[in-house]
Amino acid sequence: MIKKLIIFGAGSIGNHYANAAKKLGLDVEVFDTSEAALLRMKKQIYPERYGKWDDSIKLLNYKPELFSENDLVLIGTPPEHRIRILEENLRKGAKNFLIEKPFSTPGSIALDLFKKEIAEGVNFFSGYNHTNSKVYDSFIKDIKKSNLGPLKNCHVNWRESWDGILKAHFWMNSIYESYLGYSERGGGAMSEHSHGINLGISIIEEFDEITTLKDVNFEYDSDKKNYDKYFNSKIEAKNSFLIVTQDTISKPTRKEADLNFKNGKAKIIFGSDSDKYFVESPAVKIEENFKKERADDFIYNLKVITKGNSDLITKFNCGSKTQEIIDKAWKFF
């Protein structure tokens, strides 16, 4: 049973999960190499988002040395540091890891390392929280009971300008001050917005089986190709296909998936204050709306992880397949 969350990285994600952990009654420790980041968490980010600072949260400028089977380690640092931190903590005996998206930079050793450590009893959980949410789980259940027939195709749009991300990272004046502005470091549309790839893969795997990456298209920020501002891919499955479009330029934001079946259609939409979906066929018409706050996305994901839901292995596998698509697409950058 998870009793403590140990967070690496005092940035935006670290704050979200620190709050989620306290809501669930967990002990929380946060480690960051930057004293400024720890101070910013305590004085600005956390109290501005959640009302006030929680003095029970321990802020550490040194690395935890010992772990118990009841500890969950969140690696919420920039992607370029995640595998190194994972390896360090594996050597210290940590057995439970929540990996923020993307799991690593493109083309890293991440997938081989996950496979090796899972075989040795290590537990990994996915930071792709949109596919571990109330709306997604309900969406899939309603589709499966609606007799829509075989899935023909799925089209995902995950399109959001940098404005929202810079607002959440208010201490930055430009994306070039962090990994966000550099695709090789895990930024850009393909990696930073890879919730889109993950959503599409997770849906396909519910009804079919992903086979291969077919086509990839990038558009870049400039001739320097620091990052991809637009990413589009076609991913084939045994009996259907997936098209994913992600970008860092669109206004208004679109985070949605359209599914076409032989006997009907479905759509899921993720928003800032509500998520909703539609399922429709000649015999069925379902519409559901889920009101939420931003913090709820992280609370739900962490709650399911701490309870040990059996679907978590499947969800992490879909996260790994997302990283696999990123790694393959990177060869065409």
Rank of each mutant, 00 (worst) to 15 (best):
Arg84Asn: 13
Asn317His: 12
Tyr50Asn: 09
Ser146Asn: 03
Tyr220Ala: 04
Leu38Cys: 04
Arg159Asn: 10
Ile203Cys: 03
Asp54Pro: 06
Leu199Phe: 09
Val30Ala: 01
Lys58His: 10
Lys144Trp: 01
Gly14Met: 01
Ile2Leu: 00
Lys224Pro: 06
Ile197Arg: 05
Ile204Arg: 06
Gln246Met: 10
Ile299His: 01
Phe207Met: 01
Lys22Asp: 09
Glu87Gly: 09
Glu293His: 12
Asp273Tyr: 13
Ser194Val: 07
Ile109Ser: 12
Thr105Ile: 15
Lys224Asn: 13
Val216Asn: 05
Ala329Phe: 00
Ser191Pro: 08
Lys331Val: 08
Asp163Val: 15
Thr248Glu: 00
Asp273Trp: 11
Ile203Val: 10
Ile118His: 07
Leu199Asp: 00
Leu312His: 07
Ile109Lys: 13
Gly200Pro: 02
Ser310Thr: 14
Asn263Ile: 02
Lys265Glu: 09
Ile201Asp: 00
Gly127Cys: 07
Tyr230Asp: 04
Lys22Trp: 03
Lys255Ile: 15
Leu72Met: 04
Asp247Lys: 06
Asp163Arg: 14
Ala257Pro: 03
Ile165Val: 14
Ile45Glu: 02
Gly200Leu: 03
Phe8Lys: 10
Ile204Lys: 06
Ser233Val: 10
His130Gln: 13
Tyr46Cys: 03
Gln246Glu: 10
Glu192Gln: 15
Phe31Val: 10
Gln323Phe: 05
Ile197Glu: 00
Ala20Arg: 01
Tyr182Lys: 13
Glu100Trp: 04
Asn289Ser: 11
Trp162Met: 09
Glu287Tyr: 12
Leu148Lys: 02
Thr105Glu: 07
Asp275Met: 04
Gly51Leu: 05
Lys92Val: 06
Asn89Met: 14
Leu259Arg: 02
Lys145Ala: 07
Ile197Tyr: 04
Asn157Ile: 10
Ile313Lys: 10
Phe124Ala: 02
Leu151Glu: 00
Ile143Thr: 02
Ile269Phe: 11
Ile45Phe: 11
Asp223Met: 12
Lys251Ile: 14
Lys115Asn: 12
Lys224Gly: 09
Tyr230Ile: 08
Ser12Asn: 14
Glu100Ser: 12
Glu219Leu: 15
Ile75Ser: 00
Lys251Asn: 14
Asp208Tyr: 10
Cys154Thr: 14
Ala189Glu: 01
Asp215Asn: 14
Ile57Lys: 01
Val279Pro: 03
Ile109Phe: 12
Gly186Glu: 00
Lys276Glu: 13
Lys145Gln: 08
Ile269Leu: 11
Lys52Cys: 10
Lys331Pro: 04
Lys315Gln: 08
Phe103Tyr: 12
Lys141Leu: 09
Asp221Ile: 04
Ser281Asp: 07
Leu312Gln: 02
Leu38Met: 05
Tyr179Gly: 03
Glu69Cys: 07
Gln246Ser: 09
Phe170Lys: 10
Asn157Pro: 06
Ile286Val: 07
Glu29Gln: 13
Thr77Val: 08
Gly271Pro: 04
Met1Gln: 09
Gly25Tyr: 01
Ser104Gln: 07
Leu74Gln: 00
Glu184Ser: 13
Gly76Tyr: 00
Tyr227Phe: 15
Pro64Leu: 06
Pro106Ala: 01
Lys116Trp: 09
